[in-house]
């Protein structure tokens, strides 16, 4: 093995290297395909021109379900409930969770350990247990099942996710930044508005989106406390026995599109802030 030989042999060595299978690359593509397969099917079958009740075999291409997306009044109602609850959860859990994350990351206070523990417990506890427990709690204190109960439950189980996301960011913040703002004449509120909040915004947005995503597809907890209200996931579950209409695929596709758009916007905003 001499250096000069190696140098001249370089062109003949190159193809040898490409022949070796790059397992890492194949694995990555495999995982991606696996992740996207259900979504691809959902999108594809929103264009399926079925005649009967069952949307399981490919029968031709059509746009008609997009035109008649709101034909099922019950389904539309369920979707509106879900979106309303999702947005409200995002706002309420986003706000409470952010403040909680800020407090947990910034200050030492009595009961901090307990708060952390409860937060992780809320994340780790099986949803079935949470749902059942919430139902008994609501019955006990006299909160009627339905819209408010679902909203309360969703805020309760998503708030920990927001708090943990925000807390992770708060911990990495330089505390001198806020002191610098105070030093330059900003009061506590101005400091929060002009320095703390802009720095936390990407984390708050990420936490809020997480809460929204968790809320709109929750089935288990919702099923315990929903009462007369039917949300989107609950309606679909109910419809499986009689056949799921293609409108569900259309709505799923639209929700997915909105989600992707929001995620992309979040990434772009975060990137622009950094540079």
């Amino acid at each position: 093995m001499t250096v000069t030989l190696d140098d001249t042999a370089a062109p003949t060595q190159a193809p040898r290297r490409t022949r070796k299978t790059d397992w890492g690359k194949w694995f990555t593509w495999g995982v991606l395909a696996w992740l996207f397969a259900p979504i691809t099917f959902m999108i594809a079958f929103s264009f399926n021109d079925i005649q009967g009740r069952h949307n399981v075999t490919w029968e031709g291409f059509t746009f008609k379900w997009y035109g008649g997306v709101f034909d099922h009044a019950e389904l539309t109602q369920a979707l509106l409930y879900t979106l309303a609850i999702g947005v409200l959860t995002m706002l309420i859990a986003g706000t409470i969770g952010s403040l909680l994350g800020l407090a947990l990351g910034r200050h030492r206070f009595r009961g901090q350990g307990t708060t952390n523990l409860v937060m992780f417990a809320a994340i780790c506890a099986p949803e079935v247990v949470l749902g059942a427990a919430l139902l008994s709690l609501f019955l006990l204190v006299g909160i009627a099942t339905g819209f408010m109960a679902i909203l309360l439950a969703h805020v309760m189980f998503t708030v920990s996710f927001v708090a943990i996301t925000v807390r992770a960011r708060v911990i990495t913040l330089d505390p001198n930044l806020e002191e610098a703002a105070r030093d330059l004449g900003a009061g506590p509120w101005t400091t929060f508005r002009l320095v703390t909040l802009p720095m936390l915004l990407p984390a708050i947005m990420a936490g809020g989106l997480l809460a929204f995503a968790l809320s709109i597809d929750d089935y288990i907890i919702t099923s315990f406390v929903a009462g007369e209200v039917t949300t989107f996931p609950l309606w679909i579950w109910g419809a499986t026995r009689v056949g799921i209409p293609p409108q569900v695929n259309v709505m799923g596709t639209l929700i997915f599109a909105v989600g992707v758009t929001l995620a992309v916007i979040n990434v772009i905003v975060a990137k622009r802030r950094r540079s």
């Binding site: 330089d174 001198n176 930044l177 002191e179 610098a180 030093d183 720095m199």
Partner: peptide, 13 residues
């Protein structure tokens, strides 16, 4: 009075 911090503490945004 104004302070120049050891870490500079410039507002990154």
């Amino acid at each position: 009075v104004n302070m120049v911090f050891q870490s500079y503490a410039l507002f990154p945004h």
